[in-house]
Amino acid sequence: MMKKNIVFDFGGVLFRWHPPSFLARVWPHRAADAEQGREIAAQFFENYGGAWGDFDQGLIDAPTVIERIAARTGWPAAEVAQVVAAVPDELQLQTETVALIEELKRAGHRLFYLSNMPEPFADHLQQSHPLHQWFDDGIFSGRVKQSKPRAEIFRLACQRWDVAPESCVFLDDHPVNIEAARALGWQGLLFSDAAQARRELAALG
């Protein structure tokens, strides 16, 4: 495989992030299983728009996102706060993806991350994991006030890392983000698991 700039999403790729099962664990009184959790997640996260989208972009803080979600849904603020507080524990490291990262690094590729992540959770991940050892650099949405799938964050990444769009391979688990990257000239691979990503990266040559 030719040397490339490989860019990783975090939630659902390097760290566990599955809102339906997450909410079923945190709110069993509201979501008895992942199927009910899916319905609750749609209301809570609004497909990462609304208040949570603003939180992702660093436009509002945790108390404000709690207040806005509670006001919109009628759920008690204390329960909404419980979900927000539980997010760091949900973001468990996916060891298979770490193995892939280490393989790619040994092979000489440059590795970056581009993650929609509110600042408090970005701080947690940086303090808990050796991101600086795995990646050359990275961008958290909450720190740059931009988020995927907006074009601005992809352009900012290329500028900051001094890379051409066509040299970047982006791994993300959301089709809309992959489509946005491809529209700007990036190569994009929709991530399902590390084994699939390894095969598709190898197929790029």
Rank of each mutant, 00 (worst) to 15 (best):
V176E: 10
D162Y: 00
D172C: 04
Q187V: 03
L171T: 05
S192G: 02
A194Y: 01
A181Q: 05
G185K: 10
W186R: 05
E179R: 14
L184M: 03
G188I: 08
H174Q: 10
F191N: 13
D162N: 13
D173Y: 04
P149A: 01
A164Y: 07
A197S: 06
V169D: 09
I178E: 12
H174N: 04
H174V: 08
Q196Y: 01
E200L: 11
A151E: 14
Q187Y: 01
W186Y: 06
R160I: 03
Q159L: 15
A183P: 00
G185N: 12
P149M: 01
E166Q: 14
I178R: 10
A183I: 03
A183C: 03
E200F: 00
N177R: 02
A181N: 06
L190Q: 13
A194V: 11
V176W: 00
D172I: 01
L189N: 09
I153K: 03
W186L: 13
G185T: 11
D193L: 03
P175G: 01
W161I: 05
R160F: 00
Q196T: 14
R198N: 01
D173H: 07
F191H: 15
W161D: 07
Q159I: 13
N177A: 06
R182Q: 15
S167E: 14
R160D: 04
V163C: 12
Q159H: 14
L189R: 05
A197H: 06
L171R: 02
A194W: 02
W186F: 13
D162T: 05
